[in-house]
């Protein structure tokens, strides 16, 4: 969920896959962002296959040291993402970010959650996944359009 607090505008990017590894494809909704805007990014994760629904995001928040989200901007969308939440070691987590769009462009945003990454490896705390290691728990891509 990307919130533009200035203009009270909310953009929701979502990924729903209720059958897990099963054959039905996930439902992905993408969004249109305004150019030259700073959004507060809030990432929420739910396990909706069980009842009651489990807030996985909260679990990850509790184990912030062992997790990090990476926001990979691919195919040249003109935007930047920066972390605004940190674990007890002062390393980034990524449930909350600032998403800043610049000029009008299109591209892809891939969000990757790594479990037990090496947050001290070069570049990792700046959001560079290259040396992060760990294993991928989540990897989803959204087409984004900045207008």
């Amino acid at each position: 969920m990307l919130i533009d607090t200035l203009n009270n505008d909310t953009v929701i990017l979502s990924f729903h896959d209720l059958d897990g590894d099963g054959g039905a494809p996930p439902i992905i909704t993408s969004g249109v962002l305004s150019a030259n805007t700073s959004y507060i990014g809030l990432l929420q994760l739910f396990n909706e296959t069980v009842s009651p629904i489990i807030d996985i995001g909260a679990e990850i928040g509790e184990e912030a040291v062992d997790h990090q989200f990476f926001y990979l901007l691919e195919s040249n969308p003109d935007a930047t993402v920066s972390y605004t939440d940190f674990d007890s070691n002062g390393d980034p987590l990524g449930l909350q970010t600032i998403f800043s769009s610049a000029s009008a462009s299109t591209g892809q945003l891939t969000i990757v959650l790594r479990h037990e990454p090496d947050k001290t490896a070069p570049g990792v705390s700046e959001g560079d996944i290259e040396n992060a290691g760990g294993e991928t728990d989540i990897q989803v891509s959204f087409q984004i359009s900045i207008q």
Partner: peptide, 8 residues
């Protein structure tokens, strides 16, 4: 197959 952990 696309899943929440990427395509397998």
């Amino acid at each position: 197959r696309l899943t929440i952990r990427g395509a397998y």
